[in-house]
Computed example of a mutant assay.
Amino acid sequence: MTHEKNNLSAGQSIEPEQIDIIVLLSQIWRGKWIVSLFIILFIIIAGIYLSVAKEKWTSVAVISSPDAGQIAGYSNAMSILSNDDKYDIAGIQQRVIGRFNSAFAALSETLDNQEEPEKLTIDTAVQGQSLPLKVTYQGSTAQDAQKKLAQYIEQIDQQIAKELIDDLQTSVKSRTRDLVELLSTQEKVAQEQKDLRIKQIAQALSVAKEAEVHSPQVRQTENVSQDTLFLLGSAALESMIKNESSRPLVFPDDYYKTRKNLLNIQTIVVKPQNIHAYRYVMKPTLPIHRDSPRKVITLVVAILLGGILGSGFVLMRNEFRERQSKA
């Protein structure tokens, strides 16, 4: 008996809920025209939004460090400047793409802070790896997004090329000045050595004349020192002075190596258009699907909102009428 009462109590507690749900659904069904009007209204609003909303399309490109051939002129110039035939080309490639990344990020920040912001991004394409880089641009049309992205990549490429040329010219001027000063110092030392040699011979000639030594007094000149140079005789010493005066300066091997390096540096000519700071892994794409507004999603949301608000309006209206009738 007790068990039956419990079942009856449970049934009585569940039944009102079932009845409430049925009642609610029946009320909504009776007000289906109002719900439909809400849905149609929100569909119209969604249509207006879709017609006036600014479209957004995203073009994507993937780039990596430049090939050796794309910076061959610059790397050769750096090799000449450093006087090293095995200059680190891989290091140059990394530095160049690093400068490209930094300059592109700066441009992205500048565009984002405009009165009418433009969305330009650069990030790693593969997580955990510095290269390749993924760059994107969001435009009002698919063609505009693709075109603008290509333009901005080219703009930064030209900027980096110009910066590299300016740095190179500064390095060339500095290195040229250093080499010219080094050659000048070596020439002065060679001239001083020549002048000293002439003075030494002139001093020996003066001693030879005072000692009345006219002809050589030694047979082997290898044994003649600075102190005994006068023994070569005044005639030989006068001839030596004339010969030393007209004799070209004598330079060490390092002088000619420095001279060669200077001549090589003076032949450096690198044009900005022959330098590229990146290599395309994937060129800017022409987007097929726009980012926003999404027609399907917008319409689905409009239908759901219209249905929910319309149903809510019907239920609230019925509740208000019921309370008025009871009053």
Results as ranks from 00 to 15, higher is better:
residue 156 I to L: 09
residue 19 I to G: 03
residue 119 K to L: 09
residue 318 N to P: 00
residue 317 R to K: 10
residue 202 A to G: 09
residue 80 I to Q: 06
residue 151 Q to L: 13
residue 14 I to T: 15
residue 194 K to M: 03
residue 64 S to H: 10
residue 132 P to T: 14
residue 208 A to W: 01
residue 287 P to W: 07
residue 315 L to E: 01
residue 86 K to W: 00
residue 153 I to L: 11
residue 285 T to R: 07
residue 233 G to E: 07
residue 77 A to P: 00
residue 170 T to L: 15
residue 267 T to M: 10
residue 220 Q to T: 14
residue 48 I to K: 15
residue 132 P to Q: 13
residue 79 S to V: 03
residue 290 R to K: 08
residue 183 L to K: 04
residue 126 V to M: 13
residue 166 D to K: 13
residue 189 V to I: 14
residue 116 E to Y: 06
residue 82 S to R: 12
residue 104 F to S: 04
residue 211 A to E: 10
residue 230 F to E: 05
residue 11 G to E: 14
residue 167 D to F: 09
residue 278 Y to A: 08
residue 18 Q to W: 13
residue 211 A to Y: 08
residue 252 P to M: 05
residue 9 S to A: 10
residue 193 Q to R: 14
residue 58 T to L: 02
residue 148 K to A: 05
residue 42 F to I: 06
residue 184 S to H: 04
residue 136 T to K: 00
residue 233 G to H: 11
residue 247 R to V: 09
residue 35 V to K: 14
residue 288 I to M: 07
residue 321 R to W: 01
residue 173 K to G: 11
residue 222 E to D: 15
residue 8 L to G: 09
residue 151 Q to A: 14
residue 282 M to Q: 08
residue 312 G to D: 01
residue 308 I to L: 09
residue 138 Q to V: 06
residue 205 L to P: 00
residue 63 I to M: 07
residue 28 I to P: 08
residue 92 I to G: 15
residue 121 T to C: 04
residue 131 L to M: 07
residue 255 Y to F: 03
residue 144 D to W: 15
residue 37 L to T: 07
residue 280 Y to A: 10
residue 322 E to G: 00
residue 123 D to G: 14
residue 60 V to G: 00
residue 27 Q to C: 04
residue 59 S to M: 03
residue 63 I to A: 06
residue 89 I to W: 10
residue 218 V to D: 03
residue 18 Q to L: 13
residue 179 L to H: 06
residue 135 V to S: 02
